[in-house]
Simulated scan of single mutants.
Amino acid sequence: MKKFSHIYVEKDVKDHPRAVKILEKFPKSTVVYINKYSEVFNRPNQNYIVQKDRQNLIIAKKRHSFVYPGSKLCEDFGNLRFYHTSNVYNCLYQCDYCYLQGLYPSAHIVIFVNLEDYFEEVDKLLEEGKIYLSISYETDLLALDYITGFCEEWIKYASSRDLLLEIRTKSANFSHLEKIEIPPNVIFAWTLLPQPVIDIYERFTPPLKMRLKGIQRAIAKGLKIRISIEPVMYVRDFEKVYEEFVKEVFNHIPAESVRDVNIGAFRMSKEQAKRIERLNEASPIFSYDTVFQDKVFTYKKARHYEEFVAEKVKEFVPEEKVYVFGSQF
């Protein structure tokens, strides 16, 4: 097996029911027991890009820092109490623009199985009032749900809490959740980009047509979905490509089934960009005019790209439902 030939398991969670279920899915993998996930994940002299092609799993226990304040580089949709959490580090997909390759020392996927501790921490935050919580920024939780089952557990948790829960995804795997009850406070946000952009920047992700079919399944179940057009990436014939893309999206998705749309140009922190460039200076993300603005690495024409796409979206969706990241600054 190219992926998951080895599974590293912290001894503290080897008997945890979620760990046992995950291991049952990979009977051919070699299981190695370790004391702490950092023994493997934080080893020196790892190459994220090379390691990505031969990812392994690490099953671990999260011991602190379960919930974080939302990043300023992420859209908060007007929610004052915005947080994110990570049950999983790293992703199955291999997108050139992904900031994770500049964040983590290892490309292996870490799965924290002690969800009960996450739920307890979120409950504490909810004592002070409603929150907006994103659970899928540092991975694609829906794409990994066949391994973890975490989406269903989070949905059941949210059904009895006063919070907005966002599950962001590029996956076409929604059929996995069609049989369960999904309350209106759970938001599925699909990241959509033009197929020419997917072809250049997003390896191993489902094509646009498959993502649209996944959205149609969610809408058929009665959900209002979020469309996330980010990161807007430059591509030859930019205006033509994105105009045709927006038309294709709304030819398949009725506008009345769209909760909102967020649009944001490619961006990441200065430190992450420098690390990625050292790892892969030939990456296409460094082929166009970029700039550092307020410690953020982005396109020189980022605002123009965002506004162009936003104007095309507003032909189908009311302006008050369109969030443009650059307008925050």
Score class of each variant (00 low, 15 high):
229 I>Q: 00
227 I>S: 03
293 Q>M: 02
308 F>R: 00
244 E>W: 01
275 R>I: 13
320 E>Q: 10
215 I>Y: 06
240 K>M: 15
313 V>A: 01
321 K>M: 05
289 D>Q: 12
220 A>S: 14
228 S>V: 12
243 E>K: 14
267 R>S: 12
313 V>H: 06
265 A>S: 15
216 Q>D: 05
264 G>I: 00
288 Y>F: 15
234 Y>T: 08
213 K>L: 13
321 K>P: 06
280 N>M: 11
235 V>Q: 08
305 Y>C: 00
227 I>C: 07
238 F>T: 09
252 H>V: 13
222 G>E: 04
292 F>M: 06
247 K>M: 09
242 Y>I: 00
239 E>V: 02
247 K>Y: 12
238 F>C: 07
228 S>L: 10
214 G>S: 14
323 Y>G: 01
255 A>N: 11
306 E>F: 00
248 E>W: 09
268 M>V: 06
231 P>S: 09
300 K>Y: 02
305 Y>W: 07
240 K>F: 12
283 S>L: 07
258 V>T: 07
263 I>G: 07
215 I>G: 02
269 S>N: 12
312 K>P: 03
227 I>W: 02
321 K>I: 05
300 K>F: 01
218 A>M: 04
312 K>L: 00
289 D>C: 08
275 R>G: 11
293 Q>S: 07
212 L>W: 03
258 V>A: 03
313 V>E: 01
316 F>Q: 01
218 A>G: 11
299 Y>P: 01
271 E>Q: 11
284 P>R: 06
245 F>H: 10
285 I>E: 04
277 E>I: 04
272 Q>Y: 11
293 Q>L: 04
291 V>F: 02
244 E>L: 10
240 K>G: 11
309 V>Q: 04
221 K>F: 05
250 F>S: 08
233 M>V: 09
272 Q>V: 14
286 F>P: 10
261 V>G: 06
279 L>D: 07
292 F>D: 07
244 E>M: 09
305 Y>R: 01
264 G>H: 02
296 V>I: 13
250 F>W: 12
279 L>F: 14
319 E>P: 03
249 V>E: 01
268 M>W: 07
